[in-house]
Simulated scan of single mutants.
Amino acid sequence: MRSIILDTDIGSDVDDAMALAQIMGSPDLDLLEVHTVYGDTRLRAQLARRYAALAGRDLVVVPGAAETLSGRDVWWAGHEGTLHDDLASETVSAESAPQRLVARLRERPGELDVAAIGPLTNVAEALQLEPEVARWIRHLWVMGGSFGDERSEHNFKSDDIAAQVVLSAGIPTTITGLEITQQVTIEASRLERIRAAGRLGAALGADIEQWWAYWNETWNVPHDPVAVLALSRPELFRFSEVGRVAIAVGGDSAGRSTFTPDPEGTVRIVTGVDAERVAEEITARIVAAYPADHGESDGDGS
């Protein structure tokens, strides 16, 4: 059992909500709390709380940094939370995620994993508050970057300064980049299995379909669930040796990521994936997030 904090920009790309459900359905992961980042972090936090309630869980969710360290404008799809009624009723923490992260890590140094599947602003701000965070995180699991090509991936590009701060801090880190995540897809047959998983599945299925409609597609790439699964099922992945990751800051190449092997480094990247088995495992864990004995008689998540 690994104890984990999820740091997420849930609400835009549906893959964040999928990753949250996947973690809740993972018997090998103890989800301590969720921190939100990037843009309207209170709305994102309320959405995370709603998903937890649909899975029968009373989860601590902490809004975090709304603005990026880079000053880059926040990308907002416009549909965030629109399929979920009365999100304002969801109670979220009054604390700030960077401060909360420092406090939780100080309580349990070396025991907690962090899965950062949005821009890295919260983690960077926590490091600025307390440099010991770099030693206290057991392992950092990141969805970000694109290695071996010239692309600037969204999370790193959105806050290139935060990415540079975090990935140069000496934290033991595994990064799953676009060249890996884009090998995995969720299509109609798996969507139907997700949709059948009670109220949680119905809500997530609707959000998945909304995301498909946004891009006029009938499938999506589960970037964030793939990155999180590397923690639970490492045998389905291949990994580099440790090294260092450089992040381009500013200009047209902002966020571009380059990996260089170095035995003194602390970062590794995912280099291969069993795509079909990963897609199946993601789907199975999402379905498992809704307890088999969870009643269907009311609509309040109880």
Rank of each mutant, 00 (worst) to 15 (best):
S189F: 13
S189W: 13
S189V: 12
R190A: 11
R190N: 06
L191K: 02
L191N: 01
E192K: 15
E192S: 12
E192W: 10
R193E: 01
R193V: 04
I194A: 03
I194E: 03
I194P: 10
R195G: 00
R195I: 00
R195C: 00
A197G: 05
A197V: 02
G198T: 04
G198L: 07
R199V: 00
L200D: 02
L200G: 05
G201H: 03
A202W: 06
A202K: 09
A202I: 07
A202H: 06
A202R: 09
A202Y: 07
A203N: 05
A203E: 07
A203T: 05
A203G: 03
A203W: 02
L204M: 08
L204I: 05
L204Q: 09
G205V: 05
G205H: 02
G205Q: 00
A206P: 05
D207N: 11
D207C: 05
I208W: 06
I208F: 07
I208T: 08
I208V: 13
I208K: 12
E209M: 03
E209L: 02
E209Q: 07
E209C: 02
Q210N: 14
Q210L: 14
Q210D: 11
W211C: 12
W211D: 12
W212P: 12
W212R: 06
A213T: 14
A213E: 14
A213N: 15
W215D: 09
N216R: 15
N216V: 14
E217T: 14
E217M: 14
T218I: 14
T218W: 15
T218Y: 14
W219S: 13
W219H: 14
N220T: 11
V221G: 09
V221N: 15
H223S: 13
H223F: 13
H223I: 03
D224R: 15
P225R: 01
P225Y: 02
V226K: 04
V226D: 01
V226H: 03
V226L: 08
V228H: 04
V228W: 01
L229W: 03
L229I: 01
L229T: 02
A230W: 02
L231V: 04
L231W: 02
L231N: 08
S232R: 06
R233P: 00
R233Q: 10
R233S: 07
P234Q: 02
E235K: 05
L236A: 03
L236M: 03
L236D: 04
F237T: 01
R238D: 11
R238E: 13
R238Y: 04
R238Q: 12
F239E: 00
F239L: 07
S240H: 08
S240E: 04
S240K: 06
S240R: 06
S240N: 08
V242P: 15
V242M: 09
V242Y: 08
V242N: 11
R244V: 12
A246F: 10
A246Q: 13
A246P: 08
I247D: 10
I247V: 15
A248I: 09
A248G: 11
V249C: 09
V249P: 14
V249G: 08
V249N: 06
G250M: 09
G250E: 08
G251D: 11
G251Q: 13
G251S: 13
